[in-house]
Design a protein around this nucleic acid. Structure first.
Length: 272
DNA sequence: CGATTATCCTGTGCGC
DNA sequence: TGCGCACAGGATAATC
C-alpha cells in the first residue's frame, strides 16, 4: 500500500545510499516481477552508474548515467530494501541489484503485484507512465477545479484515479477527504470551486505531513523504508481504518461508507 | 468517453 | 487446534 508519501520516503533514502555508485549486476529470480519485457534486459545496466532517483506518483524512476531509466512500482506488498551481500535473502525476494561499494538493493514482494521494468526510451520522460496525471504534490488548485468539474464519479474515486492525480491511494484519499471536511462519496462535479480549493490545500497538507512522518505502516507491517523501519504517520490517521472508533475531531463514530465495490472511512458529522 | 467490474496474488485473521 | 474463507487493494483490461 505504498502511496506517494511512502514512495517519496524511499526515494529520499535511496539517493544518498546508491546515487553515484556503479551497478555490478542485476539478478532477477521472480519471473512476475519483471514481466513487461524479457528480464535479461536489465543486464543493459551492468556497469552503469546511478545518476538520480526520481518519482512520479507511486512510481520510482532510477536514472542512469547512460540515460537509461529503470522504473519500479511496489503496488501492494512490494518492498525495496538495502542489504549487505551475504545476508540471507528474505522470502519472496525477486530481484537483487548489486552496487559497487554500496551493497545491494533488493526487491521483495509476496503478492508479486509490484514490478520493475526498463523504460522503452532514454531520458527522464518515460512513455510507459505518460498517462499519469500530475504528481499530487505538484498539481495546482485550478487544475483540480477543472478536472473534478467534469467527473460524475464520487470524490474518492476521482482522487485515487492516477490519470487525474498521481500518488494518492486508499489511505490518503480518506485522510484528505477528512481534512477537507468533504464526504468521499459526493459526486466530484457537485463540489463548488471553494470546496475544491479546500481540497487542494488538504492534498498538499496531508501528503506533506505524511512525508514528514516517513509514511504509514499499518498493522500488517507491509510498508517499511529502505532500512526496514516503519513509518509514523499511521498514528496521525483521523479516519482510515477507524470505523466504530470516535472521531478525533468531534467524538462521534467514524463510519465506513460503501458504493459499488468502493468503500471509505469518514466522519459523517464532520464531512459534508 | 466515462464509469464500473473482474483480475492478478499471498499472508493474515476471523469464525466455527 | 485447524480448516476454510473473506479481506487487503493498485493498475489494467474488459465491459456497460
Amino acid at each position: 500500500m505504498p502511496e506517494l508519501p511512502e514512495v517519496e520516503t524511499l526515494r529520499c533514502d535511496l539517493r544518498p545510499r546508491f546515487v553515484g555508485h556503479r551497478l555490478e549486476r542485476a539478478e532477477v529470480t521472480g519471473p512476475r516481477t519483471v514481466r513487461r519485457h524479457p528480464p535479461e534486459l536489465l543486464a543493459q545496466l551492468h556497469g552503469d552508474v546511478l545518476a538520480e532517483v526520481g518519482r512520479h506518483g507511486k512510481y520510482l524512476l532510477f536514472q542512469w548515467a547512460s540515460g537509461r531509466a529503470l522504473v519500479a512500482h511496489l503496488r501492494m506488498s512490494g518492498q525495496l530494501l538495502a542489504s549487505e551481500p551475504g545476508t540471507p535473502l528474505a522470502r519472496h525476494t525477486h530481484a537483487v541489484l548489486w552496487f559497487g561499494g554500496a551493497g545491494q538493493l533488493r526487491f521483495v514482494d509476496p503478492r508479486t503485484f509490484g514490478e520493475l521494468f526498463m523504460a522503452s526510451s532514454p531520458g527522464p520522460q518515460v512513455a510507459e507512465i505518460a498517462h499519469l496525471g500530475p504528481d499530487a504534490l505538484a498539481a495546482g488548485a485550478g487544475y483540480l477545479v477543472a478536472e473534478l468539474a467534469r467527473r460524475r464519479a464520487p470524490l474518492k474515486s476521482v482522487l485515487v484515479d492516477q490519470r487525474v492525480l498521481a500518488g494518492i491511494g486508499n489511505i490518503y484519499a480518506d485522510e484528505i477527504c477528512f481534512d477537507a471536511r468533504l464526504r468521499p462519496d459526493r459526486p466530484a462535479a457537485a463540489l463548488r470551486p471553494v470546496h475544491v480549493q479546500r481540497l487542494a490545500a488538504s492534498v498538499r497538507r496531508v501528503l506533506a505531513a505524511a512525508v514528514q512522518a516517513r509514511g504509514s505502516t499499518l498493522a500488517d507491517g507491509q510498508y517499511v523504508d529502505l532500512n526496514g523501519q516503519a513509518g509514523r504517520y499511521q498514528g496521525a490517521h483521523m479516519v482510515y481504518g477507524r470505523a466504530g472508533q470516535p472521531c478525533r475531531r468531534c467524538g462521534r463514530e467514524v463510519a465506513r461508507l460503501a458504493w459499488g465495490a468502493r468503500q471509505a472511512y469518514a466522519c459523517t458529522h464532520c464531512q459534508h
